[in-house]
Design a protein around this nucleic acid. Structure first.
Length: 273
DNA sequence: AACAAGACCTGTAAGC
DNA sequence: TGCTTACAGGTCTTGT
């Protein structure tokens, strides 16, 4: 479900809730291992803490307190919502009881998500965070020149290259196809054979497509919801993703689809070279 | 070292 | 209708 725009939208929703209702009365873990083992002392450490901020790094959410941050990855199907009595779900793996009596739930049917504690000062050394690449919305750090440099002599498909979270973070399967369409680059090309001029277009395309999607509240496919329960609308603006055999919105050529790097990939054979 | 493929899970939709 | 199969927004691990 969630790539950078969806995670950023969820971040904004949680921030809105937690700014008004910032005290964590209790953390209840219904499942000690969603995907990895959650530290046993996490509920104890966060109990009674005041949330000082909600941040995003890559596709991770960080709910900050003075004693550490709750680290969360949504995996494929993770979501947060305010759950009222009677609205509980078997896949609610974590509840956070807030000062007002509201209850936040982390629901994740496929359990590809993650909850962990990042202790103060551990942010740069935490195993899930330490190898992450640049933020694509950081204009200074994320440039076509950087992509060009990091990709030299690499034979991996350019689409898999920009989905590699050690290179650039936040770009997942939908936005990789969408950005490559906007940059007019075929996804199967070897990363090392893409030119600097093309990478300049690609960096710009990543930025613009991610920003446009954030503005639309993300792409809602299947079960993705914002923390407010609303759907995003960016799926309506997809140019190629999940549009196999449909006409290109620019030139009317049939959109092609093929598995690249183990993931479904979509492109226009006319617009992209 | 770099890359591809498999593994981890459940839910849903399509095909027979 | 019911069973089987394929596939889904991610990323970690294993094998070549």
């Amino acid at each position: 479900m969630p790539e950078l725009p969806e995670v950023e939208t969820v971040r904004g929703g949680l921030e809105k809730i937690l700014a008004k209702d910032p005290v964590i009365e209790e953390v209840i873990l219904n499942r000690p291992d969603i995907r990895f083992v959650i530290p046993k002392d996490l509920p104890f450490i966060l109990r009674g803490q005041k949330v000082t901020g909600v941040r995003r790094r890559a596709k991770y959410l960080l709910i900050d307190t003075a004693r550490g941050s709750l680290l969360n990855h949504l995996g494929m199907t993770g979501s947060w919502r305010v759950v009222n009595p009677g609205e509980e779900d078997v896949h609610d793996h974590c509840y956070i009881l807030l000062g007002s009596g509201q209850r936040l739930a982390f629901r994740d049917p496929r359990r590809f998500g993650l909850l962990d504690l990042v202790r103060p000062g551990e942010e740069l050394t935490h195993p899930r965070l330490q190898h992450l690449g640049v933020e694509p919305l950081d204009v200074e750090a994320f440039t076509g020149g950087l992509l060009f440099l990091l990709s030299r002599r690499r034979k991996i498909a350019v689409k898999a290259f920009i989905m590699d979270q050690r290179i650039v973070v936040g770009v997942g399967n939908i936005y990789a196809s969408e950005a490559l369409f906007r940059a007019k680059i075929r996804p199967a090309r070897a990363a090392g054979r893409v030119t600097q001029a093309e990478y300049l277009r690609l960096a710009e395309a990543c930025r613009t497509v991610l920003l446009a999607s954030i503005a639309a509240g993300g792409s809602s496919i299947s079960d993705y919801r914002q923390a407010s329960g609303e759907s995003g609308s960016f799926q309506n603006a997809h140019q190629v993703y999940d549009r196999e055999d449909e006409p290109c919105r620019v030139c009317s050529t049939k959109i092609k689809a093929r598995v690249i790097g183990g993931r479904s990939t979509f492109w226009c054979p006319q617009c992209q070279s």
